[in-house]
């Protein structure tokens, strides 16, 4: 975002930040779990828009495809598979809700006040690490190289031979995902032991 684009950028930020926060609150307030999923999608989608605004294109797109397109659809799928009646509502008792709300407000206050108390270092003027080579959020290539262990975006000092990339974490995450794939399939395999079959979807 250059300076002349500031108005549009701030307006968009305001819209998406508001959408993110309001739908996050709506997730907490809604009673049926599918409505929660709906508000969660809007909240996470607006967060992806915030990522785009903060020049993190790849993270925004990853957020959309993995979180919204993958994880949440999985969650809704889970909702459908575990619904024992249409529009299942499991209400918390009013006392719990009030205590939860009060504690939440208190917590929010604590976080906000600590946020105000911190003196953040001034933003780097000119070229920060990300924006050095690509000023407009094109972080794709540096990200890919960093995951492969190369960091062209960092100024390595002469004697610095230590790799600052993320090759090992990347490999660990890959193996982790494979393990999760197998584990989840093993856990969720069909083994209906209970006498009454789930009739939630029919009724």
């Amino acid at each position: 975002m250059n300076d002349s684009n500031l108005l549009g950028g701030q307006l968009l930020f305001a819209i998406f930040a508001l959408a993110t926060c309001l739908s996050a609150v709506a997730v907490v307030v809604s009673q049926t779990v599918v409505r929660m999923a709906f508000w969660l999608v809007i909240s996470l989608g607006s967060t992806a828009a915030l990522f785009f605004l903060a020049d993190a294109d790849f993270i925004g797109a990853a957020q959309l495809i993995i979180y919204v397109g993958g994880t949440l659809i999985l969650l809704v799928f889970g909702v459908m598979l575990t619904a024992s009646s249409p529009y299942l509502k499991i209400k918390s008792s009013p006392g719990e809700t009030i205590i939860g709300g009060l504690l939440g407000l208190l917590f929010m206050f604590a976080v906000f006040s600590s946020l105000q108390g911190v003196e953040w270092p001034a933003p780097p003027t000119g070229d920060s690490a990300v924006t050095a080579g690509s000023p407009e959020g094109n972080t794709l290539r540096p990200l890919g190289l960093a995951l492969l262990g190369a960091r062209p975006d960092l100024d390595l000092h002469d004697g610095d031979t230590l790799s600052t990339g993320y090759l090992l974490p990347f490999e660990i995450v890959s193996v982790h995902l494979l393990v999760v794939l197998i584990g989840a399939a093993y856990l969720a395999r069909a083994k209906r032991k209970s006498a009454a079959p789930a009739e939630g979807l029919e009724s």
Partner: peptide, 8 residues
């Protein structure tokens, strides 16, 4: 925004 999401 992050704080609101976290607390929610």
């Amino acid at each position: 925004v992050g704080a609101v999401l976290f607390v929610c």
